[in-house]
Design a protein around this nucleic acid. Structure first.
Lengths: 248, 248
DNA sequence: AGAAATCCTGCATTAACCTGCAGAACCGCA
DNA sequence: TGCGGTTCTGCAGGTTAATGCAGGATTTCT
């Protein structure tokens, strides 16, 4: 069996099961443990998988959960700072949940006079600290996963709102696939939020760039602002430079 | 099962439920307790969670509510324990905000199967930890003082609800004046909550007894249960012994 | 206060890892 | 065909990581 064939086999296993054990591969491919280990090493160096004690895991699998807090906090603060200028006095703003948005909510100018609709209780609690911001918490079924209101009742209420700006965090964004997500209900929710706003801004830490998930929310055309912690001129952002999309 | 997979699993559980029990993980992952403990230790060192006796908690969650400062916490815990038996499987429960209610929400039986409506985002977040409880967050204008939804939109939604039990914290309660409050809007809100429920329970730490405020919500007659941290036979409670009011 | 659950420490075992080496297979080239 | 050079593979050995278990200490519950 050629090395390349083995590599392909490994990658197939990984794509299929998100993981693979060294010991299994030894049996399946009928080669020595060392060979397998060297294969995994090589693939890991090429960045096609991540090696762990006992085997290897798919790269995308890792990013399944968001180890946010300490790690990307600086980035999120940077994003928040760039987002603030978009919010002007008197605006009606609609926001999602997500840590980026919460960081933003913590850093608004003290004298901002605006109306915020939000589906996230965390955001509502943060916003309530500002004297001059009116906060409307959109209620409904409460999602145990994403800690936001969702479901038909929320969609209904959203349909009655006409906001100036919609602020959303990112699950995944990709030049071709646009904004994508894993959960059907959250997906519907985000679509409804887009429909309820004149403009939409996506807050996105750079590591979410060029990733995509199963369900499409909207394409890049529907997004007005893309805000990352990177320099707006950075090369990583080149694929996202579409006419209608302002990058900051 | 690879270590990394276990870690991911743990973090998913934590992101989902804000907490996780060592014993549960032992069962779910089918490894020894020591392994789980070491995993938690490791994740705690990486700062991804905080370890506590019996399991671990989400970090972000902790920073959100630092409940160490809750006033009269022991009393509130005692009240919570007495309240739990009122809530039966299948019930529809309507709750207010307030620290007593939050303490209660933290101490519900893990296997309780019920539907909770609440106007408090804090309560919603707590309740979301329970697998078998359906949580509906009632949305509307968000009060900066009392951190609950209020206003016409809330009253409207309440009118569509018919709950079995309403749980309310206390601002003030008095044998003659009944349940009273200071804020007009909150007052309206509480009235509406009473109207939406078959029965009502008042959670009340003893120092709120025999006090009254300007605006009346309801008289004692309309209350079904009065729950304090005191012995139900205590003399302080004598003035409240009305036929229709059960004291616990 | 006593029982039960949980935690910690040290130890032994097993599995997985790494390094270096040597033979096999393959390559290009005369 | 023969010959250096390269790559791939397996093996030996010594090292590290992971796990479970025993015991005793600590915490929590009642």
């Amino acid at each position: 069996m050629l090395k390349k064939e083995r590599h392909d086999f490994v990658m197939r296993q990984i794509n299929l099961h998100n993981r693979v054990l060294t010991s299994d591969l030894v049996q399946l491919l009928n080669v020595s443990e060392d060979t397998i280990r060297r294969d995994l090493q090589e693939l890991a160096e090429k960045g096609q998988l991540s090696k762990v004690h006992g085997g290897a895991l798919s790269k995308s699998y890792q990013s399944f959960f968001d180890d946010s807090e300490v790690y990307a906090k600086d980035a999120k603060i940077a994003i928040a700072k760039k987002t603030i200028p978009l919010i002007k006095d008197g605006m009606v703003v609609l926001t999602g949940g997500g840590t980026s948005i919460i960081e933003l909510a913590k850093r608004l100018p003290e004298n901002l006079h605006a109306t915020f609709f939000t589906i996230s209780p965390f955001v509502a609690i943060e916003l309530a600290k500002y004297q001059r911001i009116e906060v409307i918490l959109i209620g409904g079924l409460f999602s145990k996963n994403s800690q936001v209101s969702y479901g038909g009742h929320v969609i209904n209420q959203l349909s009655e709102i006409n906001a100036d700006l919609c602020l959303l965090g990112t699950s995944a964004i990709h030049p071709q696939d646009g904004l994508t997500d894993t959960d059907w209900e959250i997906n519907q929710l985000k679509k409804a939020m887009f429909n309820s706003s004149k403009k939409a801004a996506i807050l996105c830490i750079s590591e979410k760039l060029d990733t995509s998930l199963r369900l499409k929310v909207v394409s890049l055309d529907n997004i007005d602002y893309l805000i990352t912690e990177l320099d707006p001129e950075a090369a990583e952002l080149d694929p996202y430079r579409v006419k209608t999309l302002q990058i900051r």
